[in-house]
C-alpha cells in the first residue's frame, strides 16, 4: 500500500508522513500539486490524501489530474471544516473517496484508508 500526501502546510504533511512511516505505511509527501503530478509520471500510488484548499491547484482539481494518469487511485480529502461548511466535498465522496476534518486523527485516517480497500485490509 503506497500513499501520496499533498498539503501546502509543510510541517503538517511531513509529520503526518513520518507518523505513517513509523506505522510501516509507505508514503511520499509534497507541498504542491504540481510536484505531485510530476512524481506521478514515474508511477502511481494506491491512495492520495489531498488538502482541499491549496494555492494554485486545490485538492479537487488535483484529483481530476491525478485520476487522468492513475485511474485506479483512491482519494481522501483533508478539509478544515467538513462537508457542512465545505459543500464541494459532498459531491466528491463515493466508494472511491472519503474525507477527513483537520486536525487529523491518525487512527481514523488509517481506518479510512482501510475502508477504501476492503479486500486489502491486511496490507495496512
Amino acid at each position: 500500500m503506497r500513499i501520496l500526501l499533498v498539503d501546502d502546510e509543510e510541517e503538517l504533511v511531513s509529520a503526518l508522513a513520518e507518523r505513517l512511516t513509523i506505522r510501516g505505511i509507505e508514503n511520499e509527501w509534497f507541498t504542491r500539486g504540481s510536484e505531485a503530478l510530476q512524481r506521478i509520471d514515474s508511477g502511481c500510488f494506491d491512495v492520495a490524501v489531498l488538502d482541499i484548499k491549496m494555492p494554485k491547484i486545490g485538492g479537487l482539481e488535483l484529483r481530476k489530474k491525478l485520476e487522468d494518469r492513475c485511474p485506479d487511485m483512491k482519494f481522501i480529502f483533508l478539509t478544515g471544516y467538513g462537508p457542512e461548511k465545505d459543500l464541494t466535498i459532498e459531491t466528491e465522496i463515493d466508494g472511491e473517496s472519503d474525507y477527513l476534518v483537520k486536525p487529523v486523527d491518525i487512527s481514523i485516517l488509517i481506518n479510512k484508508i482501510k475502508g477504501l480497500f476492503p479486500d486489502r485490509r491486511d496490507d495496512i
Binding site: 502546510e9 510541517e11 503538517l12 509529520a15 503526518l16 507518523r19 478544515g80 471544516y81 483537520k102 486536525p103 487529523v104
Partner: peptide
C-alpha cells in the same frame, strides 16, 4: 488558526 492547530496536532 485551524491550520496552525493541525500542525501542532501532527507534531
Amino acid at each position: 488558526i485551524k491550520n496552525a492547530l493541525a500542525v501542532i496536532n501532527e507534531n
